[in-house]
Amino acid sequence: MGAFEAVILTIITASTPLLLAAIGELVTERAGVLNLGVEGMMIMGAVCGFAAAYTTGSPIFGVGAGLLGGVGMSLLFAFLTQTLMTSQVATGLALTLLGLGLSGLIGEAFTGLPGVKLGPIDIPFLIDLPFVGSILFGQDILVYFSFALVAIVTYMLFRTRTGLIINAVGGNHHSAHALGYDVVKVRYACIAFGGACSGLAGAYLSLVYTPQWIENMSSGRGWIALALVAFSSWLPRRVLVGAYLFGTVWIMGLYVQALGVAIPAQLLSSLPYLVTITALIMMSGDKTLTKVNTPACIGQPFAPER
């Protein structure tokens, strides 16, 4: 495998958790819910994924457990914000703090243990293609899934009735209620979907990215995913571009540093943020497109009249 392919592979590994978590949060926010707890759901996904994979020896069990860890956290958020009507911002922040603390507690027993890596699934024949073969067709299942997810979510949001209902609930919850839609139920489902995606992103970290448990191993990726969603004007295709742009600049920075180029390390580590923000701002020049895709009810609690 050449050096070029190795770089590409690390970029994919760095971008996938961002992409997974951001797509999930995008669906949650499209339904009008701002869940700031992505970081907390992700780290819970990481610890649950690692613990299950280590205990059973099966990385696939790990992926499932990571997903459930994220869903569990998101349902707690949903219960608090949708049923008990707490503030979404405060609850989301609390969810992040809770996730970081709880994962440390659960993970205490697993610190320093060797992990179980989720191996790649080579697609026969295609993997033998020159150059692109091992990059495109020698990945693990979560990478394939993350690309499929972008396509599925795009189709679902813009071509199906389910997507129409989600957009309606996020665009004007009073109207959606007046038409007979169960706003709270739709939001529960979208929050759980976001939790599942964040959990998968976390599992990816502890099963593929660095197959072991390290406390705080999500190291702010949840916040990056959150920012990507807003800067992408809630469009899945832009989330894809943003996640990979971020991953690319980040990895390139590491390589440049390793090569000993005389650029301050602080500048290099801030570069992914600057480049991604600049690029996504330039993409969002079409104000109508931005406005049409911004969920108007985001962050607002909904209580039906009785």
Binding site: R161, A168, G171, N172, L179, K291
Partner: peptide
């Protein structure tokens, strides 16, 4: 009106 600004006429009616 119980309409959705960001959706088209058809989408609003479909809902």
């Amino acid at each position: 009106f119980s309409l959705f600004d960001a959706l088209t006429v058809t989408q609003n009616i479909a809902l």
